[in-house]
Design a protein around this nucleic acid. Structure first.
Length: 487
DNA sequence: GTTAGCTGTCATTGT
DNA sequence: ATACAATGACAGCTA
């Protein structure tokens, strides 16, 4: 199993701050980032782990395109039937026999384009897919699929052009190793395929550094559209092209998802227990095939940039994600999250909401109701973990903001109180001074009225007035006063 | 080109 | 042992 002969081994990653949850066997990682796969704090800094992270950081190795959902679906479908998936629309779609390479010029017509385009993807990738995800390693730590080296050239060929033009702005971590791991990876097989998946772009490490399949995203336009292979890889696009190319990619994705829309959308609306992810209303609403066929020449670059520039990100928000999901009953679409796309790609038969929010017992029970592959299981657990962590992070930030606001409020209150106390202190001092003056005046006045036996006033230097606790006032000579003070 | 803010993700720790 | 919440750190994206 751990034979390096058949697997490529990337070089060391150069970025920092990235632990190594994955395990590597012969240059290929097994999934480890789901709960239980790696105990917290367990030793993990093996060279193999690092190497695997580097490998996973090479986004070109992963598939995450709109077409991905298509071919992945077929891959996993052929790999292991999903028992309760009845009625899922993808089955029929992806079982269509491969046809000739997709003529992108014909993609203006909605019907049929999907199958044509996808079919080529199947040609290129299907054989690899099962090799990649078809394994069902018995050990949890070895769930993740191996990527046999001999399968990669065909996998990466269509992606090479994309990465060459579109990866310049991609994941920093990924880029850090592009010149190393990627080179080693591809040259080891006599090819220099530079590919990059949007899914990987979205995550520096892909799916928890391999806990989920690198092909598990439906949004890699390169891998899914054979037309990319003929793209001028040196073409670069200006900012002005970005929007139009986004349109292109959106159109491409419509091709891929059209069959899903017909089925999955129905299930979503009906709440059926099938596909919960790829309704992609936005796609059907924004059919831009005309643009697509007209700008075929820029596909690779545009799509490469599309997934680096327009919302399908390695991390962070995906506000402008091309992949959208319905927002309630309204027609407004919200971005389809990365995990949702992955779940869609792997045909997870229950919704994200359940995966994330169900209590653990219910969640486990839900899992027992389906026959899931190890890959699907790992993805589901990753989704659950990430989903919960996402909520936790949101809550954490909310609390942090509230805490900051609270502290600022307290600070303002304390500052106001301080000012108030300072003002009060000043007033008390003034009052005290006034009282002291009044006391001095009274003292002088009282003292001036005192007379001795001879009718002479007492000397202020020799006598003073003192009040006892009982309220009586005595005229005390300074000498005796001093004695009393001494006592 | 730079920067701040937002967000998702991962690693880690504590419960 | 496991699940999970909390949180710091990091990275990508957008404005």
């Amino acid at each position: 199993m751990c034979s390096t002969a058949n697997y490529v081994l990337p070089l060391r990653r150069t970025f920092e701050g990235f632990a190594t949850p994955g395990r590597l066997c012969g240059g290929v990682s097994m999934s480890t980032n789901f709960p239980g796969a790696r105990p917290h704090g367990a030793p993990q800094d093996t060279e193999m782990d690092v190497a695997w992270q580097e490998l996973m950081a090479i986004t070109e190795l992963q598939f995450d395109t709109p077409g991905e959902a298509s071919y992945e679906a077929s891959q996993y479908q052929s790999m292991e039937p999903m028992v309760p998936m009845g009625g899922y629309g993808m089955t029929q779609t992806h079982q269509q026999p491969p046809q000739a390479a997709c003529d992108l010029s014909t993609t203006n017509t909605y019907d049929g384009c999907y199958s044509q385009e996808v079919s080529v993807c199947h040609h290129q990738i299907n054989s690899n897919a099962e090799a990649i995800y078809g394994h069902s390693e018995p050990h949890p730590s070895q769930r993740l699929p191996l990527i046999p080296a001999h399968t990669q050239p065909s996998l990466m060929a269509p992606r090479e052009q994309m990465s060459m033009s579109g990866s310049g702005q991609g994941n920093r971590r990924s880029n850090a190793c592009l010149s190393q791991g990627r080179h080693v990876l591809w040259t080891a097989h006599g090819q220099s395929s530079h590919t990059r998946s949007a899914d990987d772009l979205e995550s520096d490490s892909g799916l928890s550094l391999g806990s989920s399949p690198p092909l598990a995203s439906p949004d890699n336009p390169v891998g899914g559209v054979p037309g990319y292979q003929s793209v001028d890889v040196n073409m670069t696009h200006s900012d002005g092209e970005s929007d139009s190319m986004t349109e292109h990619a959106r159109a491409v994705h419509v091709h891929y998802s059209m069959d899903y829309q017909n089925h999955a959308h129905t299930y979503l609306q009906s709440g059926a227990h099938t596909s919960y992810y790829p309704t992609q209303n936005a796609y059907s609403q924004s059919n831009a095939f005309g643009h697509w066929s007209g700008k075929q020449q820029g596909q690779s670059t545009a799509l490469g940039d599309l997934f680096t520039d327009s919302g399908v990100t390695s991390r962070g928000s995906s506000q402008h994600n091309l992949y959208t999901k319905p927002s309630g009953s309204t027609s407004a679409s919200t971005p389809l999250s990365r995990d949702e796309r992955r779940a869609f790609a792997l045909k997870i038969p229950f919704p994200m909401e359940k995966i994330i929010n169900l209590p653990v017992d219910d969640f486990n029970e839900l899992l027992t109701q389906y026959t899931l592959t190890d890959t699907q299981l790992a993805l589901v657990r990753d989704i659950r973990r990430r989903g919960k962590n996402k909520v936790a992070a949101q809550n954490c930030r909310k609390r942090k903001l509230e805490s900051i606001i609270n502290l600022e409020r307290q600070l303002n209150q304390l500052q106001a109180q301080r000012e108030h106390l300072a003002q009060e202190r000043l007033e008390f001092k003034r009052s005290l001074s006034f009282i002291k003056c009044r006391l001095a005046d009274l003292y002088s006045e009282v003292f001036a009225h005192l007379r001795d036996e001879d009718g002479q006033p007492y000397s202020v230097d020799e006598y003073s007035l003192q009040q006892t606790p009982d309220g009586k006032i005595y005229l005390v000579p300074h000498t005796s006063m001093h004695k009393g003070e001494q006592c």
